[in-house]
């Protein structure tokens, strides 16, 4: 049985406009597609990835338009659709002025105090 791995994402919007992705969300998709048993925890600024209404469209450099901006909330939702458990730290949501209704559905809220219990259920915790 594949090792159960929790991917912790905390850095947000690092080169996402160039990459068209968050690179950790992306590699989680790719590794899941290769048979990995991976799940995701959004913490710190990365909780904003679950926010509805993100719109990075409209960039242009001279006449060169960026036609495919990142759609990170959709990418996170896509993971949930593939059976990936996506946890999100409740305090980090609140500290950033977000409410549950601002976020996509299917997330599993976890308190900071609950992280040890969450980590205990994984073979490895990769803290990106």
């Amino acid at each position: 049985m594949a090792k159960k791995i929790l991917q912790v994402v905390e850095t947000a919007y690092r080169a996402t406009l160039e990459e068209q992705d968050d690179t950790v969300v992306w590699i989680t998709h790719a590794m899941k597609g290769s048979g990995g048993d991976l799940h995701l925890l959004l913490r710190g600024n990365a909780v904003n990835y679950a926010c509805k209404g993100q719109d990075a469209s409209g960039l242009a450099f001279g006449e060169k338009k960026q036609t495919q901006p990142p759609r990170i909330a959709d990418d996170v939702a896509g993971l949930i659709g593939k059976g990936v458990e996506v946890y999100i730290v409740e305090e980090d949501i609140a500290e950033r002025g977000l409410e549950r209704g601002d976020l996509i559905s299917g997330l599993k809220p976890v308190e900071r105090a609950g992280l040890p219990k969450l980590f205990a259920s994984y073979d490895q915790v990769w803290h990106w």
Partner: peptide, 10 residues
Amino acid sequence: LASSLAKEGN
């Protein structure tokens, strides 16, 4: 996090 993990007996 280190403190919480230790409190849980890890």
